[in-house]
Design a protein around this nucleic acid. Structure first.
Lengths: 251, 251
DNA sequence: ACATATCGTGCAAAAACGTGCAGAGTCAAG
DNA sequence: CTTGACTCTGCACGTTTTTGCACGATATGT
């Protein structure tokens, strides 16, 4: 690979992800970190990016703004969102829970994907406006402000009328014995209703949720079909979850 | 996640939630509290936030935020929104239409107002999260992306179950003879349903909408109770609207 | 006033950095 | 074809930055 191409590649990474991590790029390209650092230094001196410890960021905040905004979420959640987004097949009807992790999922759905997304989160509904071929069905109800999702009887009723292929759930705790739990009773009800309306349910689990429990139980582990955890969690802390018919995926 | 991004993230949390709790953020990002505290100290010394025991608070109470927010909306719409917001009385049930003008209304509602807002706009629902005493009822349905509002049979049904005191409507055209009109048939239906669910209906009219007509008629002028127009429109262009039982208000 | 949580500082390990240097490859002049 | 100048790359080394932990000090709530 020519030096020129390498620099183009770097700028491409920057544009797409809003950041460059020297170490991971060097690994991707099979080159030493020194070379990448040299490139970054040169690109920085040309004003095409901004050098920072560990890698680089867009030169002008406005340019990489869209991508950078996504990256303002913790790494783990971005990774989970990106991985889960790949599971969505064209034509499917997908239920998306509220929360920052599922928001990442929504943002990482391919822009040309044709599918239907059902959600009780106005935030996610708004985010999906940018996806021209995704049909969005908004579940209404009383707005629970802490999580910014619709809850209550009206929401339950609306959910009951929907049959979806898959439901991506967010939780505040997942535990081998205690199962899935969340911090609000109403939300637990909603999540249960959403599970009932979907053929399959997968839980998105960032590190701090793993092996934790919250006050209100949503369901048992056996009621769901799998979980997607963030990369970098120890294999042994996942061992307790592995069983027949349950998929544990590292993002 | 790069150190620089981490600081951006912290400022983002601060902007969204109005506070930072060092412990919970460190847990979220999977880093030690020390690191977060160091970041907070540095950001504080740059004057970007205010260090307090346990975390941090905004440096200047929502100053830049407020300015940036209004910048995006034309003066006229801001003025209409501010004026209309004063009409809302404590305890009322208010229906807010979708659109930039009604969004301004929502943002200008007093922060200590106790009231209920019904809306089919996810954008407005999200904006009202910052108002702690406003109960928000979200109308669900299929999302019409052009206007970012819920439409369709489900929305109509949900609206039929509500009785509100007042409805603030947005339109794309208001005309002495043609009445109220909008650019989408579904939206016209929704607006009619919202009118039917409210005791009073007022239309928010920015200058470019005045004396204009769009393809789909919502209702006749006689069906509404008044209009709020932006300041600076000529008095004579309002003459055609003045009649018994119809209030024309300049913001 | 006491128990607990949070804070700041110093310190050590790890990661990232810059620089100098040497080997490999390229190119053009001889 | 050979030679020498030049560039690019990776490695070694010492330096700087970042991070987590330990400790004593300080603030907060009951």
């Amino acid at each position: 690979m020519l030096a020129r191409q390498r620099k183009e590649y770097l700028l491409g990474v920057l544009k797409e992800t809003g950041q460059i991590v020297a170490k991971s790029v060097s690994h991707e390209l099979g080159l030493s970190e020194d070379t990448i650092r040299r490139d970054l230094r040169e690109l920085a001196s040309e004003g095409r990016l901004q050098r920072v410890h560990g890698g680089a960021l867009p030169a002008s905040p406005a340019v990489g703004d869209f991508a950078a905004r996504q990256q303002l979420a913790p790494d783990g959640k971005v990774a989970i969102g990106r991985a889960a987004a790949k599971w969505v097949r064209p034509g499917q009807v997908v239920i998306l829970d509220g929360g920052t992790t599922t928001l990442q999922l929504a943002k990482h759905l391919p822009l040309d994907l044709k599918a239907t997304v059902v959600t009780h989160s106005p935030t996610i509904a708004v985010a999906l406006v940018e996806h021209p071929f995704i049909e969005v069905v908004l579940i209404g109800g009383r707005l629970f402000k802490h999580s910014v999702v619709a809850v209550g009887a009206a929401a339950i009723e609306a959910i009951a009328r929907i049959r979806a292929d898959v439901y991506f759930m967010g939780v505040t705790g997942i535990h081998p014995q205690a199962g899935l739990s969340t911090g609000d009773l109403e939300e637990a009800h909603i999540k249960r209703a959403l599970m009932a309306s979907a053929s399959e349910t997968y839980v998105l689990v960032s590190a701090e949720k793993l092996n934790a429990a919250s006050p209100y139980v949503i369901a048992a582990l056996t009621d769901i079909d799998g979980m997607i955890v963030e990369p970098g969690v120890a294999a042994k802390s996942l061992a307790a979850y592995e069983r027949e018919g349950f998929s544990v995926t590292r993002a």
